[in-house]
Design a binder for these strands. Structure first.
Lengths: 186, 186
DNA sequence: AGTTCACCATACGGAAGCGTATGGAGGAAT
DNA sequence: ATTCCTCCATACGCTTCCGTATGGTGAACT
């Protein structure tokens, strides 16, 4: 008979945790919250996963569209464009933060989600990279700087969902300056 | 009779998602995975939350301890210390990444968890800040740079769990350099 | 050999959730 | 008015899980 210690239980729980995933978002409580019953839900969706994928699609759609247009209209120099982009993407949005956090956590255990997240990341990164390249930065450096900024962005979202501090205007400005460091003209 | 559209369902699901939380980590599957039954679990733990809090404590313990000693032994200049710290904290650790992601997601819906995360963050931030201050950086700037680095760190963890790229050595070095930008001597 | 204790299996009641089946209400169209 | 179709309520069977109660097993100690 196998015997386990308390710590083995904890350790096993941690590894099991890396799988797990979603598992929130039950349909019946959701129905109650919306003031209807399951009958409504199963009219609109095949099953639970259908809803989840629909949410994923919605997130991807909103995550890849716009923003880009808004930035280029009001900014001209690379630094100004970066600042405008940072201001737009770092804007406080508790709901968006939580969604971003949940989906990225979900992606850890679902390849379909992971692919969707990868598409969104690709798109966002591509924009920042092209912005830096257009300013004269080398391809490799631009890509590294874009990834750096993107990590800051993800960190911002996740940190805020757990009660962390939002980036101040000063911090965003300083970050923008650091990101373009190495370029001759600002 | 209230009627909802498919999109209202999706919208309601998103807001419900912001609550949700944990909800993975069932005890019976966990027992099966470990080759035992529930009897074992309830011998070691009061209930499910007891396990969760035990995991949280374990995470906090490992998150606040060490690392610091390892860094100061091998590095002398601020830049070298930052590089050493970055190398240590950014080290690839899929399990650690997933735990970090899950706990931060969990923190969004549980004040106890949020407090624990805040303690860990406080500690980590304090170290980076003191490192920069000791190098002659002003208090405010040091704190902003520390938060910036911390966002990159969180972003690194979360991005990797979703299949994102790990920071290369070059990227870590460049980040370290940017973080100390503004200091006279490196 | 008996006792004690830590560790675990088994069985149970109850709750919650999934997905299906079926019918009803109400608007729109004809 | 009848028909049709959309949206939803209700009821059901099934599964999964929680937490408890109770007993069993083996090791250690005496």
């Amino acid at each position: 008979m196998r015997k386990l210690s308390r710590d083995e239980w904890i350790g096993g729980a941690f590894t099991a945790l890396t799988d797990g995933g979603i598992d929130a978002l039950r349909v019946e409580p959701l129905a109650k919250r919306l003031g209807v019953t399951k009958g409504s839900f199963y009219h609109h969706f095949e099953n639970r996963r259908d809803l989840h994928l629909a949410m994923l699609n919605e997130w991807e759609r909103r995550g890849t569209a716009q923003i880009i247009d808004d930035v280029e209209e009001v900014a001209f120099t690379p630094l100004e464009q970066l600042r405008a982009l940072a201001t737009a993407t770092f804007a406080s949005d508790p709901v968006g933060d939580a969604i971003e956090t949940s989906i990225r956590s979900w992606a850890a255990t679902d390849e379909t989600v992971q692919a969707a997240v990868a598409r969104v990341d690709e798109r966002r990164l591509g924009y920042v990279t092209s912005l830096l390249r257009a300013a004269g930065m080398s391809k490799g450096l631009a890509e590294r700087r874009a990834r750096l900024m993107y990590r800051v962005l993800i960190g911002e979202f996740i940190w805020r969902t757990a009660g962390g501090p939002a980036s101040t205007r000063t911090e965003l400005d300083e970050m923008s300056i650091l990101l373009v460091t190495g370029l001759e003209a600002t």
